[in-house]
Design a protein around this nucleic acid. Sequence first.
DNA 1: CGAAGCAATGTTATAGTATAACAATCTCGC
DNA 2: GCGAGATTGTTATACTATAACATTGCTTCG
Lengths: 143, 143
Amino acid sequence: MNTSDYLAAADAACCASGTRLTALRRRVLELVLGYPGVVKAYQVLADLQAERGVVAPPTVYRALDYLAQQGMLHRVDALNGYIVCHHFECTHRALILACERCGKVTELSGDDAFAALSASASAAGFVPREQTLVLTGCCKECA
Amino acid sequence: MNTSDYLAAADAACCASGTRLTALRRRVLELVLGYPGVVKAYQVLADLQAERGVVAPPTVYRALDYLAQQGMLHRVDALNGYIVCHHFECTHRALILACERCGKVTELSGDDAFAALSASASAAGFVPREQTLVLTGCCKECA
DNA sequence: CGAAGCAATGTTATAGTATAACAATCTCGC
DNA sequence: GCGAGATTGTTATACTATAACATTGCTTCG
């Protein structure tokens, strides 16, 4: 899916959830899409500042939080960053593979793995919230 | 295992790895042991400052990093904190269950779950580094 | 012993990440 | 138009983490 199709789909998804993909949010999403892997909030902030002059951190964090909530982005705690989710239409668990050498990030469906974890957790009476799983390691190219 | 047994075992493990559980590291470990769940670096820093006057962040981070390396602590990225590992003798994968309401943290063996994830990752040619998995959610008591 | 070498800690400064709190503006339905 | 709620702006600050260099202390080997 190319960027403009993606944005159109994102727009539709936002409307469907009764929210709006505003100009700001859309621009933030575009910026994130422009990066190959994981994107930091302050990178986006710098980009916005370059375009618009003064922009404060909350502006960016709010947009990123919104996009993550809508499923277009995943927040990756282990990396203090965000990645684009390329199949936000379906609710799903993401399994993120982050290469420690080249920084490349791959997303798999984590549904199966999540099921395995949930089984362990359930045994302890624990109900996991839907979330992103992250594995750091070494990718195919860097091996 | 009580605290003093734990510390003795930790000491032995450190020696076995050719390193030393120095007074500072030992004290940091004790402080972490004194907390019920996840512990933040700056909590430990505050404790140390209360005891010794001026203490700077690197002092604490170095001790925590060391203890994590030795297996006595797990760093939990999603929570920006550390938890005590109660079976550091055996190399193992930890599966952390962190309750979002009460803050309680439980550690399970994550070997099985890790195997499931590794299988998915391997299909993509990805080699995961040994690491801690974290699930956030809601624990038995808070359900 | 004494000095070399290395590990550990101290110290200073700063980078990087994130949110609280309140004000201003915009959008949409009525 | 107007009011309610959502969105964005603005200011300030809290929290998390590390770089870089100085100092101390242990140990080992001649």
